[in-house]
Design a protein around this nucleic acid. Sequence first.
DNA 1: AATCACTAGGCGAACGTTCGCTGCCCGCGC
DNA 2: GCGCGGGCAGCGAACGTTCGCCTAGTGATT
Lengths: 332, 332
Amino acid sequence: MASRKPARHVSVKDVAARAGVSFQTTSKVLNGGGTVSEVTRARIHQVASDLGYVPNLQARSLVMQRTRTVGLLAGDFSDQNLSRLIVGAEREARRQGYGVLMTSIDLEVSGTEYALPSLMERRVDGILLAAPQMEEDRAVARALDKTVPVVSLHHIAGGGVATVGSDDELTGLLATRHLVAKGHRAIAIVIGPRARRVTQDRLRGYRKALEEAGLPFDERLVTDGSDGAATVELLQRVPAISAIFAENDHLAIGVLSALRDLGKRVPQDCAVVGCDDIEMAAFTVPPLTTIHIPFYETGEQAMRLLLEMITSGSVAPRKLLLPVHLISRGST
Amino acid sequence: MASRKPARHVSVKDVAARAGVSFQTTSKVLNGGGTVSEVTRARIHQVASDLGYVPNLQARSLVMQRTRTVGLLAGDFSDQNLSRLIVGAEREARRQGYGVLMTSIDLEVSGTEYALPSLMERRVDGILLAAPQMEEDRAVARALDKTVPVVSLHHIAGGGVATVGSDDELTGLLATRHLVAKGHRAIAIVIGPRARRVTQDRLRGYRKALEEAGLPFDERLVTDGSDGAATVELLQRVPAISAIFAENDHLAIGVLSALRDLGKRVPQDCAVVGCDDIEMAAFTVPPLTTIHIPFYETGEQAMRLLLEMITSGSVAPRKLLLPVHLISRGST
DNA sequence: AATCACTAGGCGAACGTTCGCTGCCCGCGC
DNA sequence: GCGCGGGCAGCGAACGTTCGCCTAGTGATT
C-alpha cells in the first residue's frame, strides 16, 4: 500500500552471497551444468528458492546472443481469423519456451516506421508476419532485410520469405465442386479485393472446378461483394443463377441477406457456400456451408517453422500449404 | 540464400571505432545527451546510419533497470471481446513506446506455472491481466505478488489490484429499462455462469430496473443459458414472457434460435436484447438490440493506467468503470 | 615420498549499454 | 603573466549473466 522502494530483484550474486559461494558457481548450479558437490548444489537451490530468485533473461540474452523471444507483426488482432492464427502461434512458441512480442501495424503508420524497429531493438530471434493487408507493401519486404529469420502467413512482395498458409486454390475448387455435385450449373462467385492473393487463388479454384465439370466460365458471374448492392443486381440480371460461391464467410453473410431481401429461399431457390468457417457461420439462417480453413494449425505450423529456422540457422525460404475441407451445412 | 554467419549486430563500439571516438561519446550522441561538438555529433549520426546501427534494448534495460515492455496475460486471444481489449491496449502501449509481451494462459496449465514466470524473467515493467476465466483463481492472485504494477480487466480474488472495466450493473439496468419502456412486463433473463462477476452485476442491474418499474423479481424467470434446452422450457413453462434479456450476445443468439424453433416471431411475440455488441449482433435475424461495451477503449484505458503506475511508481489500486450504451436494433 | 588424476569451486572476461567523474585545451579577465 | 571556467571528450564502473580456464585440495598409485 505504502509507496515501496524499487525493491530490487534478487540476482545470482545475492544468492551466492547467502550460500557462501561465488556467483559463478551459483550460475552453474542453477543452469544444471558444471561439477558441483551435491551438498552445495542443494544449498544453493534452497537459498535461491528462499530468496525467490528469478533469472534475468535480459542479461542472459546479452551474453548468449539470443533472446528466446520472437516478434509477431500482425494486422488487426481482433480479426477473427487472424486471432486464431495468433493463438496457434503463441501456443507453439510457449511450448518451446519462447516469448512472443506482439505489435500490430495499422494503416496510419506503415509497420516499417515503428513496429519493426521496435522488434529489432528488442533483438527478437525471429519474426512472424501476419498482416495480409500489407501483402503488397514493398516497404515491408525491404525492411525485413534478412537480419533475422522471418516466416510470413501471407505472400510477401519480392518473395524470398518462408510462407505458411492454406491451399486457397483447393478451397475454391472444393467449394465449387460441391455446388456442381449438388447439380448446380449456373454458379456465380462473389469476391473480395481482386488484388489479394486469396481472391486470385480462390477464383482460380472456382474456374478449375467449372472446367472439370465442363461448364463455361462467364466473367459476368463474377461480382465484387464489397459493394453491397452488386449481388442484388447480379441476381436480377441473371435470374438463372441457382448457386453462389462467396469467397469468404463475411461476403457469404452479405449474400444471404441479399437473398432474403429478394425473397429467395436458401437453399431451395439459391444455394450458398462460403469460405473460412468463421464462428458465426454455424449460426446464420440457414447455417452456412463453408470451407474450413485450419487457422489455428496454420499459426502453429508457422511458428514451428520459424523456431526451426532459428535453431538451425537456416534461411531456405520454404513454402507450406495446409489442407482444407468442406463443412456441409444448411445453405446447400 | 547461402547459410550466413551469425552476422553480429552492430554496436555502439562499432560505430565509435569508425567515427574515431570513444563508445561512450557515441552513446551520448545517440541519446541526445551530453556536450558534444556539432561536427562529431553529425559524424557519429552519419556513421550510425551507414552501419545500420540498432540500439540493443536488452543492454539498455540492464543498466536502466526497466525494459519498457509490459506483459499481457490473457485468456483466449481469439475471443472477440478480449481481442478488442487487447488491440486497444497494444495501441496505447505502442503510442507510449512500450513493447507488449503476450502470453495466453489456458485451462491445462494454470497461468502461474509458465506464463507469469516467463514474464517476470523477461523483467516486464508491468502486467496487464485479461483472463476472466480465472477470476476466482487464487493462485493467480498470490502469484502476482506485487513485484510489478498490475492492472486487471476483471475482478481479482483477494483484491488490491487496480481494475478497469465497464459498468456491468448499468449494462443490465439499461437493457432491462429498454424492455420496460417498450411496455414489457414479463421479462425473463438468460444468464451465463452464476459465479462470474459479470453475471452477478448484470443480474443486479436487471433487478434494479424491475424494481424501478415496480415489477416483482421472480427467480423462475432466471435461466442458465449454457443449457440449450433451458430457454425452450422456460418459454413453455411461462408463456406470458414477452421479452428476454440475455446477459451476453452469444446467449442472445441461442435465444433467437430457440424462439425460431418454437415458431415465435421476434420482436412481435417476444423481444430480445443482448449485451456486448459483438460483430455478429448486427447480422442476426432480426438484428440484435444490445448494449455496447467499449472494449477497445477499456483496453486503452487499462494500459494507460498501467503505464501511469509504472512511471509514477504508485501502486494505489484504483478502479475504473467505463460507461456503456444501448444500441437499438430490430429485435426489440 | 613424489606423482597423478580428479573433484570442487574460483576467477576474469565478455555481452552492449548508461552514467558520473576526470582531464585536457582554449580563451578570457584581471 | 596567471588563474579560471567552460566546452569537449575519455575513462571506469555497473547492470546480471555465461563461459572457459585456472587452482587448491584429496585420495590413490607408483
